[in-house]
Design a protein around this nucleic acid. Structure first.
Lengths: 149, 149
DNA sequence: CTGTGTGCAAACTCTTTGCATAAGT
DNA sequence: ACTTATGCAAAGAGTTTGCACACAG
């Protein structure tokens, strides 16, 4: 048996050293199997918008054994760690967005799908002062669309 | 016993003739006790933002016997009838808004309170084209604020 | 009277939690 | 070894539904 080195393999002492593992470490999260797997699903494509359930489905497809509770935990941990952003478009489901930059969303009420609006595609002017004693955290714009009839 | 006429009393045949009753009739909804009571709570002040639970609390305060299921039914019926508008600011709770005009919202993440941003206080420019095969239903802007620390 | 609305309680969905087991360092 | 994460199942919140009774027309 010959040892074949690889970016995503473990060091002799067993510590994973891949990019994903380092991203998790940097965020203060231990690179466990489930977190690594979910992080790979989430961050190895372009920008993604997932719900807990859609991510679970992807994990199942990828043969990753992970419970729904862990999906929720992980999504919130990633959000707290600044790796994901929560998007409130529909009261029925919570969506998470891998795109952390300042941008907004289309929400298709027919398919319940979310997609990005590029930052430069929309400008808000004449922003009002927030109520006294409060400060602005973020401005979310949701452009609701539906299939043309 | 003397008959004292009033705008909100019933006609001899028992049909309520108040403004609220007529609003409901116009919307195709029978002016029942509960719907009348909830409509009065909702539409006899300025613009309101309610959740099912806050409306139930108000109904209890107003000595209106109404079940939570009826609150939900009524809110959705009013929304479908175009008397209310649903506002998606927080995935945890559904808010309904009596202000039907084109406007946006402040959402206080600390108190979970919603309030209006006047239409003229915010302008969106350079609106992008919606995805192919879809048309824009509405644009919602939520300015998330939190108590100043 | 006839049909619609309401209340109640139970069902349902999405999400969170408690605790024993498994995995990471 | 010691600590933290995971899985499972059960609880929890908010919302919806089914059915018998009550009310509006």
């Amino acid at each position: 048996m010959v040892h074949i080195p690889s970016r995503s393999m473990s060091k002799p002492d067993g510590q994973p050293v891949g990019q994903v593992a380092q991203m998790l470490r940097a965020a203060g999260l231990r690179p466990t199997r489930q977190r690594m797997a979910l992080a790979k699903i989430l961050f190895s494509g372009g920008n993604r918008h997932v719900s807990a359930e859609s991510l679970r489905d992807e994990a199942v497809d990828a043969r990753v054994p992970v419970s729904l509770a862990t999906i929720y935990n992980t999504l919130h941990q990633f959000t707290t760690a600044g790796l994901l952003r929560e998007v409130a478009v529909d009261a029925a489901r919570t969506y998470f967005d891998t795109n952390l930059s300042n941008h907004h969303h289309f929400y298709n009420e027919g398919s319940a799908g979310v997609c990005d609006i590029p930052t430069d595609g929309l400008v808000i002017e004449n922003m009002p002062e927030p109520p006294e004693g409060t400060e602005i955290v973020r401005v979310d714009v949701v452009v609701r669309v539906r299939p043309k009839s």
